[in-house]
Design a protein around this nucleic acid. Structure first.
Lengths: 216, 216
DNA sequence: TTTTCTATTTAGTAAATACTTACTAATCTG
DNA sequence: CAGATTAGTAAGTATTTACTAAATAGAAAA
């Protein structure tokens, strides 16, 4: 049996051993893949180590427990800022269509581009991990608050009908998130004939027609 | 240590040993509780047996494997028919408000009354159990198809605007299901000031105002 | 080269887990 | 009641799992 790390590993480029920082990244990234696929309880440290290409013992030099690795992965997601600059710009201009299009588009495209995040979010919530609350506080609540505030403001300005702003926000975000959930959690198996832009346009149109005080 | 099954168990009523059928039910019901709380991988056969009040060996007389117990629990949910008679009645009368109110109310009240089902649904999908597809086919797809068909019909009749019927259905169901998910999966911790009826009324109003060809 | 330091592996351990075997207590039937 | 059957338990087994101590390979510095 040849040595595991064959010197001419992939062409004849020298296969340098990764630095500690690089290795840590590899572990975080593979860990995310595994945990997102099977959850905390469904993932073994052995499996993570294998998919990184190291032994469990090596993994434990970087993280002192499975739990702390999981926390590091979730914590990094928590730190990743949730941006909605374009929606904020549009909000200042009172461009309702642009506001909700930017939000819907951001959530849908972000979610389909990074399905692992969504699955991790669900597993973390379902498995009642202690970082579930911070994760929601950083990536779910701000969006709802932004939409709620915007709806409240537009009602005050007479542009939207006087509904409960929180329920309005939940309605709009619900359409988008549920669409995403069905696609990501239920798997890509089903057919999704529409492009994401069509989906966004339809949801925004439906919602705005529904809330506007003066329907055209 | 006294014998486990103390003769005067709960007052002095004779505590009969449950029949096999009764015991099976107990196991299914406790199994559901455990699996819904912690998922398949997070639940041990020992824990299930303990919460039934028997040993693991006894459990294995009823189900030949943990997997087959899980399947029996999910299969029973699959067999439970999904009813929406009231919505169908209302659909025949073309009473849009009644149709969507019945659907929203049914989903929301069913979901809050039986949160275990929702959690089991999510765990089954996330953990990629083989019965996930049948479960969705029996309890998710029919609802979507019903709404899609109704929206298509109302568009053809000129009552609704010409949107994509499937997206219309997803939008409406999305509002409702996401509201439920946040409440059930994220936990009851958050405050939900509105009664379910208020929530239903707002969502139905928003949606119908959004899709109607002739907004009042 | 030799030394030093770190990354990694080999080879474990103790506890947990799904499942089983050998036996016993409870209930039913004639 | 005797005999048969069913429901249950105590005490395992084999394997997996999270985690660790000690030896070793790899790179950089002296």
């Amino acid at each position: 049996m040849p040595t595991r790390e064959h010197p001419s590993n992939l062409s004849n480029r020298r296969s340098r051993r990764p630095t500690a920082a690089e290795r840590r990244e590899e572990i975080l990234s593979e860990g995310l893949r595994c945990f997102a696929a099977r959850g905390f309880n469904g993932t073994t440290t052995r499996r993570i180590a294998e998919s990184v290409g190291i032994t469990e013992a090596a993994l434990y030099r970087y993280f002192r427990s499975k739990e702390s690795l999981y926390s590091a992965i979730v914590a990094r997601k928590i730190e990743t800022p949730l941006l909605f600059d374009r929606a904020e710009d549009a909000a200042r201009r009172r461009d309702d269509t642009a506001v909700f299009t930017a939000l819907a588009s951001g959530v849908l495209k972000g979610g389909t581009a990074d399905p692992e995040f969504l699955r991790l979010l669900f597993f973390t919530a379902l498995e009642s991990h202690e970082l579930a609350a911070p994760l929601f506080a950083s990536h779910v609540d701000p969006l709802r608050e932004f939409v709620t505030d915007y709806v409240r403001m537009r009602i005050a300005e007479g542009a939207f009908r006087p509904i409960d702003p929180l329920l309005g926000a939940r309605a709009f975000l619900g359409m988008i998130r549920d669409y995403l959930n069905v696609r990501i959690v239920h798997g890509e198996s089903e057919a999704y004939p529409q492009s994401l832009d069509e989906v966004v346009a339809t949801f925004v149109d439906l919602f705005l027609t529904g809330v506007r005080a003066d329907p055209r």
